[in-house]
Design a binder for these strands. Structure first.
Lengths: 251, 251
DNA sequence: CAGTGGTCTAGACCACGCT
DNA sequence: GCGTGGTCTAGACCACTGT
């Protein structure tokens, strides 16, 4: 009864088992590469390959010159994106403020002709005029979220709120701005995906190397007519954000 | 002016550059390990290490005995996970059926003592008895979704619905099963994250290499008492699933 | 069959940290 | 200084594919 699983996997599995059983606690130092070589025979590459697996899995951290250690369970501070009813704020400001961080953003608006995809999402004809705004959101000066937003210009026309981020209605969120036009918007529809950041996003979000992101396609509708009034692509660092939907019932 | 970047990284970077520039197209065969050894000198481990990086990055696939190939960009049909109100089905069945696929699942239930994390989410004492069920969901025989579910045993006790997937109430979803106990559950609260699959998940979901996943922490509450009745960790392939929240208003 | 990738050995050299 | 991990060599053997 020979085992056909490679030896370096056996080594890794044994160490993993000792970690998961609690035999080795977070922060504990693991056997050195040469200790493993002595115990299992073979060359140093064996232990190195085993540790590489565990490091890739995030179970172990290696400190050059000091040894391998069981990773301490640091759950990085998570920013929360609460999808809340009847909120007047922009969804971004809420979560950041609740974490005690300082939120801010940069933006850039231009009018363009709706692409086929945007037109589809806004229920308008391709080529119709839309206001396109790009956002970069910062928490404590660190970019953490990107968004591209589109609104039909036919809706906001030449009103005070045509430019989302200019004038008295800057930064208050779609719901409040639309109310100026006597439009009531309800909860948005959000389509959430997980994917890898592309290079531009990774650079903008300071992710080296590129990591997973939450990509949300969000659309607000006029509650009276069910017509879309704003659609946006929101991209957030997967390691920093949780997007929350629904709420605990109040009995 | 020597470069201090390791040689295997240089090899990997050069191949990556050729792929990203389009010089090497998806599906193209890459230089063999021995060809690289001949070109760069050194042993086969050099090329092997370089290819390991690229494979881990998802840029390259290796076929044992056949060579390394530029990964082809398959964007498969997206399955939709609709988070819908007043639904009696389990959330999984809906989306799959709408895509014309055949959904099925495997499961495995055991009773255990609640861990600290699970107890926190269920609002019970750590160590209290819970029913723990592991699910693997398949669409057209392909595993596409994993879930770990916990329910307080104090709730379902020795009733017909203590085992989620046994008896007349198998596969109908939490809402319908809880109604048997005269418990009305509302919409769940979902906390959505994006992260990389760990190796076990990647293997279970057939993701080679590990890719981004949607990780959803879902909790159902008793609407009358606001007490949690079920909590689950759901993991879905990020390249296959969209999770949808909210709905277009009906004027 | 020849060619390929995956695993593994035995050991060398270097960069790093003080466990 | 000495032990540590990270890189690298030269090559062996096996498992797999048909490029």
């Amino acid at each position: 009864m020979t085992t056909d699983t490679p030896k370096y996997l056996q080594v890794a599995d044994q160490i993993r088992a000792r970690i998961e059983s609690g035999d080795l606690a977070p922060g504990d130092r693991l056997p050195s590469v040469s200790e493993i070589s002595a115990e299992w025979g073979g060359s140093s590459s064996l232990a190195t390959a085993a540790y590489r697996l565990l490091v890739d899995d995030g179970l172990v951290v290696s400190r050059h010159g000091a040894g391998h250690y069981v990773r301490s369970r640091e759950t990085p501070e998570l920013l929360v994106r609460q999808h809340r009813r009847r909120s007047e704020d922009s969804p971004f400001g809420q979560g950041v403020a609740e974490q005690g961080a300082v939120g801010s953003w940069r933006h850039d608006s231009t009018t363009e002709q709706a692409s086929e995809a945007v037109a589809e999402r806004l229920g308008i004809e391709p080529g119709a005029a839309v206001m396109h705004t790009s956002y970069v959101y910062l928490a404590d000066e660190q970019p953490v979220q990107l968004a591209e937003s589109w609104e039909p210009l036919a809706l906001t026309g030449h009103s005070l709120v045509a430019l989302p981020e200019v004038g008295p209605y800057a930064g208050v969120g779609v719901a409040a701005r639309m109310r100026v036009l006597s439009i009531e918007v309800g909860d948005p529809v959000e389509r959430v995906r997980a994917r890898m950041a592309n290079r531009a996003e990774a650079q903008a979000l300071g992710m080296t190397p590129p990591g997973p992101v939450l990509a949300i396609e969000r659309t607000y509708y006029d509650q009276a007519t069910a017509r879309p009034v704003e659609t946006a692509d929101v991209v957030m660092r997967g390691d920093r954000w949780v997007s929350v939907y629904g709420q605990v019932p109040t009995p």
